[in-house]
């Protein structure tokens, strides 16, 4: 595989008595999309929070491009080239869509040299790219959920990151919107070549987009492999049995795989 961009080593994160992450390790390689899945409460979002510096893990280390970033402040990590979207969208409500996106550009890895004009230019291009150009002047709070998800993506992309963390960007979208977002993510990979970690509940999306998948369950990593390996992993299926809908999807996927 390609060069390693992120290395998560033995990370443990506790909230009081609850172990949200239990000695989790995995690598992310340049250019790939890594799917991060698991039932609700498995610790996926917490993993993102630990990688981006929102939480400091009690144990373990995180290396980004060979440099330890464990416990660094979030803004420092963002400026090194790791950007993320939030499961619960976080628009700057009273600011315009364009300003929201400009702030992404202004404070990203290029923060020291970028001018406001350049930031505006980048933001406009990104809004075009994610399909929000016609909403650029509106205050972000008036967007609908689909548009807010796109704005999350736009803000992160405007930073011109090397590693992009996507936290359930498909959640809350209708099937048509899901497909559009998947197409958009395909384009991010193809045209921008950004490495991504993608937390997702929409199974067919992860199965299609991800090169590899890591499965968390109760804070532990229970499996890692290609989508095919994951879909046929008995432990993964058992983990999802608590979530019948999800288990069904896995079984279907298995059957499809077996039938072909």
């Amino acid at each position: 595989m390609a060069e390693e961009i992120l290395r998560v080593v033995d990370v443990t994160k506790r909230f009081g008595g609850l172990i949200a992450l239990d000695h989790v390790s995995f690598n992310v390689y340049k250019g790939e999309i890594l799917g991060l899945i698991g039932p609700n409460g498995a610790g996926k979002t917490t993993m993102f929070n630990v990688i981006t510096g929102v939480y400091k893990p009690e144990e373990g280390h995180i290396y980004y491009k060979g440099r330890e970033i464990t416990g660094m402040r979030p803004h420092k990590i963002a400026r090194m080239g790791i950007s993320r979207t939030h499961q619960i969208v976080k628009p700057f409500g009273e600011l315009s869509v364009l300003e929201n996106t400009m702030i992404g550009a202004l404070f990203g890895p290029k923060h020291e040299t970028i001018t406001e004009e350049e930031a505006r230019q980048i933001a406009s291009e990104i809004l075009e790219f994610v399909g929000l150009a016609d909403k650029a002047e509106l205050p972000a709070r008036v967007l609908n959920i689909q548009e807010k998800k796109r704005l999350e993506l736009a803000k992160a992309l405007a930073q011109e990151p090397e590693l992009l963390l996507l936290d359930e960007v498909l959640a809350g979208l209708n099937p048509g919107e899901v497909q559009k977002m998947i197409d958009l993510l395909e384009r991010v990979r193809r045209e921008k070549g950004i490495t991504m970690i993608m937390i997702e509940h929409v199974m067919h999306a992860v199965m299609n987009l991800a090169d590899r998948i890591v499965v968390l369950h109760f804070g532990r990593k229970i499996a890692e492999g290609t989508p095919e390996e994951i879909a046929s992993n008995p432990e993964v299926i058992t983990a999802y049995l608590g979530d019948p809908e999800m288990a069904l999807k896995f079984v279907k996927k298995l059957r499809k795989g077996g039938g072909a």
Binding site: V54, R73, S83, I103
Partner: peptide
């Protein structure tokens, strides 16, 4: 507007 989001975005 959102201090946590600002920090994560590099502010």
């Amino acid at each position: 507007e959102d201090e946590d989001a600002a920090e994560i975005l590099g502010v």
